[in-house]
């Protein structure tokens, strides 16, 4: 896959969809393509996060540590973003991601992403919009859950 295809891939992601084409290209260019072998661990819960990944091909399994051991909570596939929270704020990884069958992803290093944000207010606005939408979504879920509990 060449740079042009990676740019298309990035454009398909909500976080990046309204970014100018040249900025998107720059982001793709400054990101590394990384292969994970079958059975590798992409990230571990509790580790410091230094990059987000956009899955190009393959499958990722998301696990969360609980007192009773690891539980699988989700599966991720091509076009999905993994670990984007960690590149915006300094917080440990909130989940473990394994790649049982191998996976190829575009690795977006934290510094590059933040630099891009600081150089372009539009991108920052776009990100805020996406995050606000997510927050609203979470709030709605919370309200629904509370309503259900009190009912």
């Amino acid at each position: 896959m060449s740079l042009a295809e990676e740019v298309d891939l990035l454009r398909g992601i909500a976080l990046f969809e309204r970014m100018e084409p040249s900025k998107l290209k720059l982001l793709a260019m400054t990101s590394d393509r990384v292969n994970f072998r079958a059975g590798a661990v992409m990230m571990k819960q509790g580790d410091n996060g230094d990059a987000a990944y956009v899955i190009i091909s393959g499958k990722g399994e998301v696990y969360i540590d609980t007192p009773g051991g690891e539980i699988k909570v989700a599966e991720m596939g091509p076009g999905q973003v993994v670990g984007e929270i960690a590149i915006m704020i300094d917080t440990p990884r909130t989940a473990t991601v394994k790649t049982p069958e191998g996976l190829t992803a575009l690795k977006i290093p934290k510094e590059n992403f933040l630099r891009l944000l600081s150089s372009s207010p539009q991108i920052a606005l776009e990100i805020i919009r996406v995050l606000a939408a997510r927050l609203e979504n979470t709030n709605a879920q919370l309200r629904a859950a509370v309503a259900k509990q009190s009912a």
């Binding site: 260019m29 400054t30 630099r115 150089s119």
Partner: peptide
């Protein structure tokens, strides 16, 4: 195209 409006001192230049 990519670097025309990146600040000259930006580390991106150095690296990429």
């Amino acid at each position: 195209e990519l670097f025309a409006d990146v600040e000259p001192g930006d580390p991106l230049f150095e690296q990429y």
